[in-house]
Design a protein around this nucleic acid. Structure first.
Lengths: 157, 157
DNA sequence: TTTTTATATGATAATTATTATCCATTGATA
DNA sequence: TATCAATGGATAATAATTATCATATAAAAA
């Protein structure tokens, strides 16, 4: 069993137990969505989750995906990455707030390993007097791979 | 003439000259929108700008506001603060990317004076190898004023 | 196991910010 | 002043998400 698979299984179980603990029904649809979420490391959109879901349960509705995401959000078992006027992206692999970096060429979203992120909240609280609830740090740019491609085909975009 | 008024006038002129320089037509609608944007320090929504605009030019259309904002965005004369599934907010007073802090109680958006923001981009570029285009830092929490209110009326929200 | 009941699902309609379309109008240049 | 591309206004289209509601069902109780 690979490392990813162990992690995947653990995340699935964590989410499953959280739903159980708060007396949400463990329906086949929800179980399938938990499985999909625990396996996808690419910050999928609701539509992506729905596509995967249809492979297993062809009669499901997109509404069910949205409703399940709402529940998981409330339980803090999924992190919502909001985008203006395009689909939100979801991270249930690491549901704790953390920064991301988005490649504007290939649309890939990667976790940004920024050590100072955790102390940011305290710094800002101290400085502003706010009771800080969320700190959202989202970076956009061109990833190294796409930079290479654009060097090989200058002016191609 | 107060400090704010001087600043307001200067920003209006900067935007006016920028449009002129790039051969955009200086229509009454655009001039009115520039004036509104230069005077509003509260990060207004398109709808807020439209409301103000109607006082002066009652026949204007919301589409005109959106179109003008699109032009100003392209010229980097207005900063767009995106919100998922609610109206974007716009800052033409300080159009350069900068962080904000949002009060979840009174909905006020304030500029966050965070000195380390400017070096963040370089740090992240160095660490990730990305060609960084934008760094978006948006904080949410309860402002000192609203904390006081919530102390006076515990459990009121 | 059967019954009960609150909750979830699925189909569909509604919502809402924004964008697209298209024709009449107009600012800017010659 | 004449010309013409750019703009404005009215309206339709778009698209992600949320609301609605009748039916189905998971899970607790009997």
């Amino acid at each position: 069993m690979g490392k990813d698979m162990k992690q995947t299984t653990r995340r699935f179980q964590q989410m499953y137990e959280k739903l159980k603990k708060f007396h949400y029904k463990l329906t086949p649809q929800r179980i399938a969505i938990l499985k999909i979420l625990s396996e996808r490391f690419d910050h999928p959109r609701p539509e992506d989750i729905y596509d995967d879901l249809q492979q297993q349960l062809p009669t499901t509705s997109p509404a069910t995906v949205y409703k399940t995401l709402t529940v998981l959000k409330k339980l803090k078992e999924v992190l919502e990455i909001q985008y203006s006027h395009e689909s939100n992206r979801y991270d249930a692999v690491n549901p704790f707030p953390h920064p991301h970096i988005f490649c504007t060429a290939c649309q890939k979203i990667t976790d940004l390993d920024f050590s100072e992120y955790d102390i940011l909240q305290k710094k800002i609280a101290l400085q502003t007097g706010y009771h800080v609830e969320t700190v959202c740090l989202e970076v956009a740019g061109v990833c190294p791979d796409c930079q290479k491609i654009s060097e090989s085909f200058p002016g191609s975009r």
